[in-house]
Amino acid sequence: MIRARRSIVHEINAGSIADIAFLLLIFFLLTSTMDRNYSMRRDLPAESQEQSNVANRNVLTFSLNGMNELSVNNKAETFDKVSARVKEFILNPTGSAELSEKVNKNVKLLGEVPVSAGVISIKTDDNTSYSAYYRLTDFINKAFLEMKDQQAQKVFGMTYGKLDDLRRKAIDESVPVSIAE
């Protein structure tokens, strides 16, 4: 009797497992999105105290007009020069009196280092398109990332991305990103 039953029920019908899996698959397809969240982090500046107590040489002004044309300190400029301009302004390799001032600052891990007091100012017109503004901030970010990488190579012999939090903070302090809008 028992023998006979065993021989009848020899396997579970797995035909509907595919249907169940399909159902799950469709559920996930509907509830999820493929778009990755890529974004640029930015802290909004507290009410503008800029201009007033920052010396002229320490401000580099990027302006975008209503036609999305770029000018740097009121002179027309092309977008692909933005990174170079920012780097020149912040690093001030020749010690020019027109470019940003270096102030010695005590940074953890690094000791006394010259830190630029430069401020990047971004001015836009009401009619400027967001993509132009985005492009400009992208180039400015790029300049700062490259300078941080350079600094990290110089003092720690590694790229910025490979540093641990403590060292990264030291680099952040020695290459401060100050952007006013």
């Binding site: 969240n37 890529y38 974004s39 640029m40 982090r41 930015r42 802290d43 909004l44 507290a46 009410e47 975008l64 836009t124 017109d125 009401d126 009619n127 400027t128 398109s129 967001y130 503004y133 985005y134 901030t137 809008e181």
Partner: peptide, 23 residues
């Protein structure tokens, strides 16, 4: 247009939501 973007940013500043990111 940046006019709209500025208005939104001003609103965020006013209520103290300072951490933002641009997608």
């Amino acid at each position: 247009r940046m006019k709209l973007v500025k208005q939104v940013k001003d609103q965020l500043k006013q209520v103290g939501a300072m951490q933002i990111d641009y997608s």
